[in-house]
Simulated scan of single mutants.
Amino acid sequence: MLVKTFVKNNLVLCVASVVLVVFFLGYLVGMEVGQDTVRKQELANLEQRLAELKDSKSNTPSQISKDNDPLLGDPDAPLSIVEFSNFQCKFCLRFYSDTLPLLKTQYIDTGKVNLIYRDFPIPKIYDNSMSAALASECANEQGKFWEYHDILFENQHTWRQNESDLSLLTFKQFANTLVLNQEKFDSCLDSGKYADEINSDVGDGRDYAVSGTPTFFVGNDKVGYSSLFGTQSFSDFQKIIDEKLEQ
């Protein structure tokens, strides 16, 4: 009797184990299928974007407005890089950390190129991008745009996933770090003072077929502009800049 009970119990355990293994394998397969679907959708989106860029190359405007946005370098430099960007974008961070230092050393600091930063927040994708843009404009009001620009990118990991209220507190702490007039900065940020300015940048960007960040326009009104989208290497910029400098 004990032997039969033992065999019966072990049989139940074996069946249960098989069921669990089958369930777990099914879960993994389902998860993999889900991930594969996501990857296919991302690839489709990328291919669509590349096709749009290919079709729009010949339609790149010959003139790109710099508005009155922050400029890095010599205002009289022969060429400009007009950047449409947002501070919460990982690809924008990659440009800041990997490509901009080389551009600054070889072209901006040497007076050959200047960089104009234009806001292009995308709140539907990046929850904190609008408030970050507003904060940078408030810093610009006190003459510290580029310092604030740098601190936002260098600390992106500390605020990009935060709830909006917590991000606002973080942005105010950054102002304190840069020794800005705190009361003036806080009032500026809380009131959304520069929302119209930012929306004007977004409107111009859409007129230029900007649909994602970062997007760059390299050139001047005389030789025209070439566009670059997404994470681009220094050599990609270098090729366009050198060609336009020779024109």
Rank of each mutant, 00 (worst) to 15 (best):
S187V: 10
F174D: 04
E154I: 06
F171A: 00
H149G: 02
Y208N: 03
G212H: 08
Y148I: 03
Y148P: 01
N176R: 13
A175N: 07
D204A: 08
E197C: 02
S200M: 08
N199I: 07
K193L: 11
N181C: 06
D150E: 11
A209I: 03
S164P: 04
T213C: 09
A209L: 10
Q173K: 14
D190E: 15
Y148C: 07
W146P: 03
E154Q: 14
F174E: 05
H149W: 05
E163D: 15
N181K: 10
G143H: 09
R160F: 12
N181P: 04
D165Q: 13
H149S: 04
L178Q: 07
T170R: 10
E154G: 11
D150F: 00
S187I: 11
D204K: 07
K193W: 09
L180D: 00
D196S: 15
Q161L: 13
W146S: 01
S200T: 13
E197L: 14
T177Q: 15
T170Q: 13
R206M: 09
N162K: 15
L189D: 02
D186N: 14
G212D: 07
F145M: 01
W146D: 07
I151W: 01
E183C: 02
T170I: 13
T213G: 06
L189N: 00
P214Q: 05
G212E: 06
F145G: 01
D204E: 08
Q182T: 13
S167T: 15
D201H: 12
I198E: 02
D201C: 10
K172L: 08
D196M: 12
R160Q: 07
N155C: 01
L169Y: 10
T170F: 10
D190Q: 12
K144R: 11
D150M: 05
Q161R: 12
T158I: 12
G143C: 10
A175E: 01
D190T: 08
D186I: 03
Y194E: 07
R160K: 10
N162T: 12
Q156C: 02
V210K: 00
E163F: 08
N176S: 13
A209D: 10
L152V: 05
R206Q: 14
F174H: 00
V179W: 02
H157Q: 15
K172G: 09
C188V: 04
Q156Y: 06
K144F: 04
V179K: 15
D207K: 11
N199S: 13
Q173R: 13
N176V: 08
W146M: 01
G212I: 01
Y148M: 06
L166Q: 11
E154P: 00
D196W: 06
E154T: 11
H157A: 15
T158A: 15
L189R: 02
R206A: 08
N162D: 13
D207P: 00
V202W: 02
K184E: 12
R206G: 10
D190V: 06
E147H: 05
D201T: 02
A195K: 14
F171M: 08
Q182P: 05
H157D: 15
D201A: 04
E163T: 14
F185L: 07
Q161V: 11
G203S: 15
D196N: 15
V179Y: 10
L180C: 01
L178P: 01
Q182V: 11
S167A: 15
Q173W: 01
S211V: 09
K184I: 09
N199W: 05
N155E: 04
S211D: 09
D196I: 09
D186C: 04
S187R: 06
Q161E: 10
N181L: 06
F145Q: 06
